[in-house]
């Protein structure tokens, strides 16, 4: 209950601040209205949470294979469910951001856009596999294995590929991240951005804990009704 209030107040403060302060992009550098760049405050934290969920589910998958404790399967599944949600939102806000930066909603040479898309493909594969297996033990086991394989493939795609593939080079270099990859933001922008990052992370863990509790209670109820 306390968390609900803290997250509500924090999120509200971030939203208000994001729209009351000046846009993080100088109007001179912008392709469209500079106000659009406020989406940066929300897009990056969403993408961060989606990746966090992915890493979390991989960690729980490894733990599941080590212990065979179904609790970790539930945790990996929940992290993946939330991951899909945030990845979809991040993809939508990301393409709006991209439209304003390069004039296109979608660009196959932008490594971050492509990675979010592949992340969605991976989630799709994960859920397709789960729904194709009836036995809960087998399902938990096999989806843990595929999670780990996916995670290694994703590491290749996100960290190794851009170094090789020269076309993968664009990113928003004008205002927020400069050519050397350093973040150049004013103090206000930085404060709003990092509060938003913290609030989205808190929001994620709050939903995550609630979902775990629901899953646990559902399982308990099913056991009792037998």
């Amino acid at each position: 209950m306390l968390w609900k209030i803290i997250i509500f107040l924090g999120m509200s403060a971030v939203i208000v601040a994001a729209f009351l302060t000046a846009s993080p992009m100088r109007a001179a550098n912008s392709l469209g209205p500079a106000d659009v760049y406020r989406i940066f405050y929300f897009h990056v934290p969403q993408a961060w949470v989606a990746s966090l969920a992915f890493v979390l589910s991989m960690i729980y998958s490894i733990r599941f294979l080590r212990t065979r404790n179904m609790k970790y399967d539930t945790k990996a599944l929940t992290a993946n469910k939330l991951g899909v949600m945030f990845a979809i939102v991040a993809m939508v806000t990301g393409s709006i951001f991209a439209k304003m930066t390069w004039g296109e909603f979608w660009n196959w040479s932008e490594v971050r856009e492509v990675s979010v898309f592949i992340l969605l493909l991976i989630y799709g594969g994960y859920f397709a596999l789960r729904s194709a297996i009836a036995d809960p033990d087998t399902r938990a086991n096999l989806s843990a294995v595929i999670s780990i394989i996916f995670a290694v493939a994703a590491l290749f795609l996100i960290f190794v590929l851009p170094r090789i593939y020269s076309a993968f080079s664009q990113h928003p270099s004008d205002s927020i991240i400069d050519k050397s990859g350093q973040i150049t933001m004013g103090l206000t922008v930085r404060m709003i951005f990092f509060s938003s990052l913290i609030m989205f992370t808190a929001l994620f863990f709050w939903i995550y804990n609630l979902s775990i509790r629901v899953a646990r209670l559902t399982a308990k109820k099913m056991l009792e009704s037998k």
Binding site: P136, M222, K226
Partner: peptide, 14 residues
């Protein structure tokens, strides 16, 4: 060969 307190559930089904 020894089995100690072995039990098996399929999901919620004992």
């Amino acid at each position: 060969l020894e089995l100690k307190n072995v039990s098996k559930y399929f999901g919620a089904r004992k």
